[in-house]
Design a protein around this nucleic acid. Sequence first.
RNA 1: GGAGGGGUAGCGAAGUGGCUAAACGCGGCGGACUGUAAAUCCGCUCCCUACGGGUUCGGGAGUUCGAAUCUCUCCCCCUCCA
Length: 410
Amino acid sequence: MEQLNQEQLSEVRRQMEIYTQGVQEIIPSEELEVKVAKSIMKNRPLKIKLGLDPSAPDVHLGHTVVLNKLRLFQDNGHVIQLLIGDFTGKIGDPTGKSVARKQLTDDEVKHNAKTYFEQFGKVMDMEKVELHFNSKWLSKLNFEDVINLAGKITVARLMERDDFEERIALGKPISLHEFFYPLMQGYDSVELECDIELGGTDQHFNILMGRHFQEKFGREKQVAMLMPLLEGLDGVEKMSKSKKNYIGIDEQPQDIYGKAMSIPDELMVKYFELITDFSPDDLAKIKTDLESGELHPRDAKMLLGKTIVRIYHGEEAADKAEKGFISVFQQGAMPDEIPTIVWDGKKEVAVVDLLVELDMLNSKSEARRMIQNKGVKVNGEKVEDTHTVISITNDLVIQVGKRKFVKIHI
RNA sequence: GGAGGGGUAGCGAAGUGGCUAAACGCGGCGGACUGUAAAUCCGCUCCCUACGGGUUCGGGAGUUCGAAUCUCUCCCCCUCCA
């Protein structure tokens, strides 16, 4: 290999520092540096792949851990390859569930891809992103091709996958088709000739399959970059839509702020590290101040909430969200902005009916319970009796629990 | 192809003719205390025309005064052997 000059060498170091920050694992880490060096020397951008599940298009903060990293590559002139697993999605990820994933129509896939595109735009420059669908090549393989592909990997190797190992130990079933999922993901990397594949640590096995197959097909092997998984609001499970423990980047500022405030303290630092734009120095200061007690955990969390809102909605919205939070939750006032619902029903309504019609609760029984538990307020006054009848007036405010408010307009 | 085990509320799991709208645990929700954190405590957790009524225990049909519990049948899942 030709020698890098001094300037190029420091450029390699600069980029490496950026890329490796906050990454859980790089496999193998030396190769990343080689790739970056080559790219700089030959002035050829690296291709960074990110695989996406076409069935869950709501982007939340968990995704942004990876997206932020991609963005850094993009900022330095490298090419991001977004791969929509439209074909793979039909087979189903081996998650231990017996229920087969429902097949998506082409329209749904397109729609979901578009949603990704719009939401990713908040983090990266979509103009420069390459978009791919793996059905393009996977749907063309015939049975012979598939057998050939399968011949390039051993069963023993496949069974090393944590999930499979676990299920074998527990005596749970593994369908044969599930073995093909890693094969397909690996083959995608062959097709895309990617230099790096990014993903969460849960993608460890699949991403290494990319290396394996690239080698079998005589291509240059990709580097695996694994980002830590972000736990959701419950502090235990990985953030995901199905667990309902997520903060969506599309959500309202107040909601984002509020949800951020409800994360367990132990998670704060991790959130700061993975989903905010603080510099390593700032992060270090927050950490030490928290430890010394100089920074109250509550205040740190408020800073976190404000920062997240700022990133996705701007400075102004962040200020507003914080002020709203202080007045509503710390001082018990009513929020400034309450969703308004136009009421064209009767003027005199039983509370229980009202709560259901406003869609604040699912059934009258639930409404009665909620009232008995002292969780319903009308214009700030607690409703004591389940039989209460409300006279509807303009701007009447109904509150359920601590956070649900609705204002009525006639 | 053979043998066996199983499908109960969001999940896990009791219950095997009336006392079961169904124990218990988890989760979830509300309240108290707080910092919409943790811990703790209290209450709730099928629906409704609500001191009562209606529909629930994989689907359907039956036996019975009465079934999640018994019979038949269909569907689905799992384990072991070949």
